[in-house]
Structures are given as C-alpha cells and as structure tokens.
C-alpha cells in the first residue's frame, strides 16, 4: 500500500457515517471523481442498494435498519464480531435465508441492478443463478470435479456436452485450478485438498457466470498458503465480477477489499473505503474493533 496519507484522509470524508444507534441513511454521494482508494471509484448508484433493512430470526432482530450501497466490480468486505449479522446480510442478497423457517425480512428493501429481489414475482432460483456464493466451509458435492462444475450448468439448462466441457475448463482456469486438476477431472472432488476444494467451489460458482459473487468467510478453514492463493484469485476476479466477502480476518479485509462495512450487533456502524476504515475510522467502535481491542 503506497497511497499518500492525504488520499487516506480524503477517503475518510467519503465514508458513510452513522452512529450505532442511528438508522438514518446517507445516500451514496453523487459521482465525483474520487482520488482516494485504489483504482478509480465512481459514485454512481451502486449495483446493490440496501435500504432500511430489518431482518428477524423468529422474534429476534438480527439486522436493524441496514442501508448500504455496493458498487459493481469492486470487492466489498463485511467485517464485525461474531453474531453481528454480516453473514445474515450476505445471505439476504441471494435469499438463502428463505431456507430458514421463521426467518425473514420485516422491513426495507434490497435492489440489485434496480430490481427489488424480494418483490412479488421474483424467483429466488433465478436470483441465485446470477448471484454466486462461496461458503465458509468448502462444500463440493460428492461427485467428480467435472460433475461439480457441470451441475450448475445443467441446472441452468445446458445440454451440449462440448459447451459444458469448455465452460468447465474456463471456470477451472479462472479459479486457477485447471493446472492442478486437468488430469483428474473425473476423480472425486472430496479427494482434493481443502484449498483446492474451496477454489473448486469458486470455479463452480463462476461456471454459471454470475454478476455478483458472495463469499462467506471463504478462507476461514484454510492454511495461509491456500488463503493467499484465494486472495490472489479474488484480485483477478474483481475485474469481471462484483464480489462481497464476509471475513473475520481484518488483515484479509484490508488486503483484498476496496470498500469495507463494519457491523456490530446487527447494525451497520461504518462503511467506506477500506483504507479509511482501517487507518482512520470515524466511529470509536470501529476503531476498537479494527485495532483489535474486542471481537
């Protein structure tokens, strides 16, 4: 990180500020040439717009008035202590929470590409086809490496063998796994190492060409080398995909993400450019967390 301190301070100004108890929403600032952050940030309306979101597990409120705008082709990190609701929010984005009984959104909306994903008539299955997800624990199907990736394609209605073959190869290449497994595509995926399994899961998500990839602590079960590989991969992928990553590791958030959202007790405490959040957090709770005093 070789950015000048000045850039950092200017980044802090664009940080969406809110106190833990306050649920007012500061809309993303209109497009202004941002000199901060890596790359060129634009302030166009985000790809994903979350407004006033309340989420409940039964009677327990898990998310409280979340307002968040996530931009396309960026890596956005969700950080915060356990139980802060970051994974819940992530799973709201592809409606995985639909699978949990008695859980659901009571208020607020999520729009992706301008469309409300919880609107009547929205098919969560169509939604999930465009929003890929990678889980905390690698979860390859007990099938061959090839079949793991082909599964999603078949679900999408691909029938042509040659096309499936080429897509499998392409996504394995994109996930930087091709060179390691191209000679054993038809071996059981459970024979791969933990890091390879996780990259396979990423490849599986890539194969169906989603617009957004959600990553739920994708490296928490991996060793540092495997983690480094995945982080490298994330850097590659953000050229083409919008990536949202939930992580426990603040170093990881700092390394891979462009923007960071800090959650605490179901509330979004602070959201802004990653460097600003880490170097110059505006909220004392954020500061306490990123400096390791709790969490």
């Amino acid at each position: 990180m070789v950015s000048a301190p000045a850039a950092i301070s200017s980044d802090s100004q664009t940080t969406t500020r809110m106190s833990a108890g306050n649920i007012t929403f500061f809309p993303p600032q209109p497009a202004s040439p941002a000199s901060d952050g890596p790359g060129s940030e634009s302030r166009a309306p985000g790809l994903i717009e979350i407004a006033g979101l309340d989420f409940y597990y039964g009677e327990k409120k898990a998310l409280d008035g979340i307002n968040l705008s996530i931009e396309a082709n960026r890596v956005t990190a969700f950080i915060g202590p356990s139980g802060c609701g970051k994974s819940t929010l992530l799973r709201c984005l592809n409606r995985m929470n639909d699978l949990i009984e008695d859980a659901g959104i009571r208020r607020g909306s999520i729009k992706i590409g301008g469309a409300d994903i919880n609107a009547r008539g929205v098919d969560p299955i169509e939604l999930r086809k465009r929003i890929g997800m990678v889980f905390q624990k690698s979860n390859p199907f007990p099938k061959s490496i090839y079949e793991n990736i082909a599964y999603g394609l078949r679900i999408q209605g691909f029938k042509n063998k040659a096309e499936i073959d080429s897509r499998v190869e392409a996504s394995l290449r994109n996930a930087a796994l091709w060179n390691e497994v191209n000679d054993r595509l038809h071996d059981n995926a459970l024979g791969l190492s933990g890091g390879q399994q996780q990259r396979l899961c990423i490849a599986r998500a890539l194969a169906v060409e989603p617009q957004v990839i959600l990553m739920d602590e994708p490296c928490s079960a991996l060793d540092p080398i495997a983690t480094a590989k995945i982080e490298e991969l994330i850097h590659e992928l953000k050229k083409r995909y919008t990536i949202i990553i939930v992580t426990h590791s603040m170093q990881q958030a700092a390394r891979v993400s462009d923007r960071t959202a800090f959650f605490y007790l179901g509330r979004l405490v602070e959201y802004g450019g990653t460097r600003a959040i880490f170097m110059n957090p505006s909220n004392p709770q954020t500061e306490a967390y990123v400096s390791g005093r709790f969490g």
Partner: peptide, 11 residues
C-alpha cells in the same frame, strides 16, 4: 435486472 421465473414448467 429481471429475476422473474424464466421457465414456467419448472414450478
């Protein structure tokens, strides 16, 4: 974006 059901037979 459009997240409506694409193939009606599935349901």
């Amino acid at each position: 974006m459009n997240f409506q059901t694409q193939r009606t037979g599935r349901h």
